[in-house]
């Protein structure tokens, strides 16, 4: 009983399919182009000298070691501060809060935080932190803490929800107080959510520039972590911006872009791996 489609329907069918394929092709081509272009332009510029030295005006040499270290420091500092805050907030929401109003207010606030553009964070970070402690990596890290708080909160909350109720009941049934139950039974169960949150945050920190420009500055000095956090410094992304926009050093900029691209791929891969494991555990 197969009836041929009317002409109008046939055109619709063909047109829609063509448009879809076009769109998918465009998206795929775009990603491929960006990937190949950045890698091809960037990789030849990545030399050991670039990675292992700092820039010197005397010799006209550019090195991104300080930027790599700064990125590392700011990632560490941000995570160290944001983890307890975000995990604590998530624990409050899932384990302690009994007032539904407070829960929805907190969740709404987290939603607002994740929608605020980074340039505004940069501005507020400047007012709140840099104006008080000077332009330094720590001021940048504190700004990033606020930006990443919702991420850590959300992923932790999601994994807390997968900790079976029966574990909590079992512990309460033995006379354990709430804090002991949280510490011994609930917290170990949310490790994967915390890890997912960390990976996502690292990705976000690596890619961040607007929020750091006015809070962490753009110096290129090699420091230890304590000294580094107390002094101004550019992360890789900020350095890329400065080299490309202000100094026209496109070779270095592409080298950094290629490094960032590879890191992004690694982070995305890590996220999906963790989430797959997570899903398996849940089922």
């Amino acid at each position: 009983m197969k009836q041929p489609l009317s002409k109008k329907r046939k055109i619709y069918e063909v047109l829609m399919k063509a448009l879809m394929l076009l769109a998918v092709g465009l998206t795929a081509a775009l990603v491929l182009f960006l990937l190949v272009y950045v890698i091809v332009k960037g990789v030849p510029n990545i030399t050991w000298e670039l990675l292992s030295t700092k820039p010197s005006y005397l010799t006209g040499r550019i090195g991104i070691l300080p930027d790599i270290l700064n990125t590392l420091y700011i990632v560490i500092a941000t995570l160290v501060i944001v983890l307890p805050l975000g995990v604590g907030a998530a624990i409050y929401l899932t384990e302690y809060a009994s007032n539904q109003r407070i829960v929805s207010i907190i969740e709404y606030a987290a939603e607002i935080l994740s929608g605020i553009p980074s340039i505004i964070y940069g501005l507020v970070g400047m007012l709140l932190f840099s104006n008080n402690m000077g332009t330094c990596l720590m001021a940048g890290a504190l700004t990033l803490v606020i930006m990443n708080l919702p991420t850590i909160m959300r992923t932790t909350q999601e994994s807390l929800k997968t900790v079976p109720r029966s574990y909590r009941e079992g512990a309460f049934g033995l006379g354990a107080g709430k804090w002991r139950v949280v510490r011994t039974v609930v917290l170990p169960g949310c490790v994967d959510g915390v890890i997912t949150g960390c990976i996502l945050s690292v990705g976000r920190i690596l890619g961040e520039s607007a929020a750091l420009l006015f809070t962490a500055g753009f110096a290129h000095a090699v420091n230890g972590i304590i000294e580094g956090l107390a002094s101004p410094g550019a992360t890789l992304t900020v350095a890329l911006y400065v080299y490309a926009k202000e100094q026209g050093e496109f070779g270095v900029a592409f080298a950094i872009a290629a490094i960032l691209m590879v890191l992004t791929i690694l982070i995305n891969f890590a996220t999906t791996t963790v989430q797959k494991k997570f899903a398996k555990k849940r089922s």
């Binding site: 990603v31 961040e208 520039s209 982070i267």
Partner: peptide, 16 residues
């Protein structure tokens, strides 16, 4: 691929 597109830092978009 879309995840990668989302993860690329904005300065890289700017550069390209």
């Amino acid at each position: 691929a879309v995840g990668l597109l989302a993860g690329i830092p904005s300065v890289v978009y700017g550069l390209v």
